[in-house]
C-alpha cells in the first residue's frame, strides 16, 4: 500500500523558493548570531540557535510535504529519519573540518549527500518523482541546519570540541536526532490527506520545532556555555502561539467541530 499522499504535486500558497530562503538564511544567520552574541554578550543568547532550527524545520516540513505528496510507497516517517541520517553525517563532518566556517561546510556537505541520494532514488531505484533530487537536497540541508541550531542552543557554540564533549559524547545528539527528525516528518504525516493545506502543515512544523527548542532548553540546563531559562520560556511561548493557531486552522478546515459531551454513564446506556 502506498501511504502518504494522493500522487500529485501539492498546492501551495507560499512558494517553496521563499521557504528555502527562510530556512537557509534564517538557519545560518541564527546559528552565527547566536554564536557571536553568546561569546560577546553572554550565554542567554543561546536560544537564537533554536530559532534557526525552527526555520530549518519548517523548511524541511515543506520539502517533505511536497515530495511525500507524490506518494513515497512507504510511510512519511522514513524521509524524516533519512533527513537526519544524512544531516548528522554531514554536520559532524562540517563542524570537524570547518572551524568558524563549520555550519556553511555542513550545509554544503548535506546538500551534496542529499542530491546524490535524490539522484539515486530516481535513476537507480526508479521512483519517478520529478522533484526528488531537489527535495532530497532540501531535506538533508534542513536536517543539518536543525542539528546545528539545536547544538548551538545546547552548548552556546558550534566549535567541534565543545559540541563533541557536551552533545555527542553525552548522547544528547540522539535527543536532537529524534526531536528534529520527528519535527520534520510529523507535520505532514499528521495532516496528510485530501484536505491537507499548506498553512496548517507549516504551523504544525512551528509547533513541533518549539517542542524541540523546549527540549534543547532543558538539556542546556546542565551546560555551562548556554542558559536554559530563556530558551525554555521562548520555546513555550512559540509552542503556545503555534498550537493555538493550529487549533484555529483545524476549526477552519473542518466541516464542523462539535463537542461529544462526557461518556454516557452505565444507567444512561440501559
Amino acid at each position: 500500500m502506498s501511504a502518504g499522499g494522493s500522487g500529485g504535486s501539492a498546492g501551495e500558497a507560499i512558494p517553496q523558493n521563499k521557504l528555502i530562503v527562510f530556512g537557509v538564511v534564517g538557519g545560518l544567520v541564527a546559528v552565527y548570531l547566536s554564536y557571536f552574541l553568546v561569546s560577546i554578550a553572554g550565554s542567554a543568547f543561546a536560544f537564537i540557535g533554536a530559532l534557526g532550527a525552527i526555520c530549518a524545520i519548517v523548511w524541511g516540513c515543506s520539502a517533505v510535504r511536497r515530495v511525500a505528496s507524490y506518494g513515497l510507497g512507504t510511510g512519511v516517517p522514513s524521509i524524516g529519519m533519512l533527513a537526519l541520517g544524512m544531516g548528522v553525517v554531514a554536520t559532524m563532518f562540517g563542524l570537524a573540518v570547518g572551524g568558524i566556517a563549520g555550519p556553511v561546510i555542513s550545509l554544503i556537505t548535506a546538500a551534496i549527500i542529499g542530491l546524490v541520494i535524490g539522484v539515486l532514488a530516481n535513476k537507480v531505484l526508479g521512483m519517478g518523482i520529478p522533484i526528488m533530487e531537489k527535495s532530497m537536497t532540501e531535506i538533508a540541508s534542513a536536517g543539518s541546519l536543525a542539528i546545528l541550531g539545536l547544538s548551538v542552543t545546547m552548548t552556546g557554540t558550534f566549535m567541534f570540541d565543545e559540541v563533541l564533549t557536551y552533545v555527542v559524547a553525552t548522547g544528547y545528539i540522539a535527543v536532537i536526532y529524534i526531536t528534529a527528525g520527528l519535527a520534520i516528518l510529523h507535520p505532514f504525516n499528521a495532516n496528510l490527506g485530501s484536505d491537507e493545506t499548506q498553512d496548517r502543515t507549516l504551523v504544525t512544523g512551528f509547533e513541533k520545532g518549539a517542542i524541540a527548542m523546549l527540549i534543547a532548553g532543558i538539556v542546556a540546563a546542565v551546560s555551562n556555555g548556554a542558559a536554559s531559562t530563556p530558551t525554555i520560556l521562548i520555546g513555550l511561548f512559540i509552542w503556545y502561539t503555534a498550537f493555538t493557531k493550529y487549533r484555529e486552522l483545524v476549526a477552519r478546515d473542518a466541516y464542523d467541530v462539535v463537542g461529544t459531551g462526557l461518556l454516557p454513564t452505565e444507567e444512561e446506556l440501559e
Binding site: 522514513s78 529519519m81 553525517v89
Partner: peptide, 15 residues
C-alpha cells in the same frame, strides 16, 4: 551517531 546515521540512510533506501 555516525553508525546510526549511516544505518538509517541504508534502511530508507531499500524501503
Amino acid at each position: 551517531i555516525f553508525a546510526v546515521g549511516i544505518f538509517f540512510v541504508n534502511a530508507v533506501i531499500p524501503s
